[in-house]
């Protein structure tokens, strides 16, 4: 791995700050899907502060890397990441959830907020759109890559597997998906609803290179991203084993936090655990 320990530490601090902001905003604006946001924070942090070739001052740059949050209900996390990365002021999110703003429970369209590449929310849509963007790079001879974060629950959708087959068949090696495998979907253990396991074997069988990592370990996430693009010429699926509600002891692996909104005491306790005083 080429990333320094200092960089990893910096990314970890960013992730903790983001978790605190997400929890505060969830409490203030009454936003659900907190557990789903917290599991993905380390993936989003590593992508936006280490991996993606993007310039927030040029959100339409044809050469930019594209990122799609295919599990669109996790957008409270992405909105905070985009603000921290400089696409818009963090203070814009003080108005999260207010009537007439673009900050809701799912991403708006790209023309309504810089940094957003696809208005996801209906599961199973973002990944195919991302594949189209990756194929466009091939046709237009542009050097960018496309990254998408999927939920394990989202992998219930048939369109994910249609897309996986086509990307594998076409060897679209500028396409990387990260599966936020937090083992839960809205109402049950994902493994008990659909036969997801062995998940890495499935992606491999569909023509992808795969890596299995601890998706809440920043060094592991960064290390996996350094493996992209795969030398084999295949697209890359990073199976990121994560914990729903990661970072707050009383939220971790408790699926009630798919919908629950934290109260003021729970926000304070969360921030204390995260080591965030502000």
């Amino acid at each position: 791995m080429t990333a320094s320990p200092d960089l990893i530490q910096d990314l970890q601090l960013k992730a903790a700050t983001l978790r605190a902001r997400i929890i505060e905003t969830s409490s203030r604006a009454g936003l659900p899907h907190l557990g789903s946001c917290l599991s993905s924070v380390d993936l989003l942090t590593a992508l936006y502060f280490y991996q993606l070739k993007v310039d927030p001052s040029k959100p339409d740059d044809p050469q930019r890397d594209r990122f799609i949050l295919s599990k669109g209900h996790g957008v409270p996390a992405l909105f905070q990441v985009l603000a921290m990365r400089g696409y818009y002021p963090v203070s814009d999110l003080d108005h999260y959830g207010e009537d007439g703003t673009v900050f809701g429970e799912h991403p708006p369209t790209p023309s309504h907020l810089p940094g957003i590449e696809a208005a996801t929310g209906s599961l199973g849509h973002g990944m195919p759109m991302g594949l189209g963007m990756a194929l466009a790079a091939r046709v237009n001879n542009l050097p960018y890559s496309v990254y998408a974060v999927l939920g394990d629950g989202e992998c219930n959708e048939g369109s994910i597997w249609e897309c996986a087959l086509l990307a594998g068949g076409q060897k679209v090696n500028n396409f990387c998906v990260l599966i936020d495998f937090n083992k839960w979907q809205a109402t049950d253990r994902s493994e008990d609803v659909m036969a997801l396991n062995p998940l890495a074997d499935k992606w491999r069988a569909f023509g992808w290179d795969t890596l299995e990592i601890d998706g809440n370990n920043m060094a592991a996430v960064v290390g996996a991203l350094e493996e992209f693009p795969s030398k084999s010429g295949k697209p890359l699926a990073i199976i990121a084993h994560t914990i729903k509600g990661k970072g707050v002891s009383f939220m971790e692996d408790d699926n009630n936090w798919h919908y629950r909104i934290p109260n003021a005491d729970e926000v304070a306790l969360s921030k204390k655990e995260l080591g965030i005083t502000a």
Partner: peptide, 12 residues
């Protein structure tokens, strides 16, 4: 998937 791919191509 084809329709989603088409949208991704068209947006690029």
């Amino acid at each position: 998937n084809m329709m989603g791919v088409a949208a991704g191509l068209a947006l690029n």
